[in-house]
């Protein structure tokens, strides 16, 4: 029980009449890396946004480190500051330098004084190998660099958990490597992560568990070697075969 970081129970979410998530349960232990896979439109992004309450679930309950964050009277801003999020299209703050992007959460949300925040932000930029780009604006960085800055932005708040929504699908193939390398390193360092991704090789090497979703439900889950070689469900097998062909 002590090492359970995230627990989802019966998460449902609809947009109007469209039911996107149907009764999703998921446990994530501390230090675990879970990779969400599944066809487009099955609700992976929606699930991630439910977890940090950017799109609160309609029904179902979520616990973070044993505390229910879907309970009434919870400060959602505080919850979000303890869950990092990395977006497909980076969403770096365009008017701020790389350093300020990483620092702003510390200063504005956590109330850290500017000097300490600067040191902490530089530390995170170093962790993603971008210390020398601290003064650059997002538009002056490559896609891969922008995504690494956005990882540093998430790391800076010392989150319990980081959510990644297809962090490499907006990138050219030659740039995905540098981002995946940083993510693998985080996995080794024991960061707890939930990642929506189509990167098979990355998933094979970094994931503790593959979670396969289709039509708003978790169809099957298991360790990568089992899931990729001998999945139980037909839909899972079809999906991985199709993805495999593309590689």
């Amino acid at each position: 029980m002590t090492d359970l970081t995230l627990r989802l129970e019966g998460i449902c979410k609809s947009f109007g009449s469209l039911s996107v998530l149907k009764d999703v349960d998921l446990d994530v232990n501390k230090g675990e890396t879970k990779v969400l896979m599944g066809p487009s439109g099955t609700g992976k992004s929606t699930l991630l946004r439910c977890i940090n309450l950017l799109d609160p679930p309609d029904t179902g309950r979520i616990w973070l480190d044993g505390r229910e964050i879907t309970a009434k009277g919870i400060n959602v801003d505080e919850v979000r500051s303890s869950i990092g999020m990395v977006f497909q299209d980076f969403n770096l703050f365009t008017h701020l330098t790389a350093l300020d992007n990483v620092r702003i959460g510390l200063v504005r949300v956590k109330g850290v004084d500017k000097k300490t925040a600067t040191d902490m932000a530089m530390e995170e930029l170093r962790r993603v190998d971008l210390a020398e780009k601290a003064a650059s604006y997002p538009a002056q960085l490559s896609g891969g660099q922008q995504q690494r800055v956005s990882i540093a932005r998430a790391l800076a708040l010392k989150p319990r958990l980081i959510l990644f929504d297809e962090p490499t699908s907006a990138l050219d193939p030659e740039l995905t490597g540098e981002v995946l390398k940083v993510m693998s390193r985080l996995a080794e360092d024991g960061m707890t992560m939930v990642i929506a991704s189509h990167e098979i090789d990355f998933a094979r090497s970094a994931a503790d568990e593959i979670v396969f979703m289709a039509d708003g439900r978790i169809v099957e889950k298991g360790p990568p070697d089992v899931m990729f070689t001998s999945p139980q469900q037909v839909r899972t097998r079809d999906f991985f075969r199709r993805i495999g062909e593309r590689h």
């Binding site: 801003d77 979000r80 299209d89 008017h95 504005r108 998430a154 708040l157």
Partner: peptide, 27 residues
């Protein structure tokens, strides 16, 4: 301003007022 800016601000724990003040207004 792209909607992702607000989303990202909320995702690092800013409340609406903080996000408007330090992300939206400067841009």
């Amino acid at each position: 301003i792209r909607s992702g800016q607000m989303l990202a601000a909320r995702s690092i724990g800013m409340n609406r007022r903080q996000a408007i003040q330090s992300i939206i207004v400067p841009q």
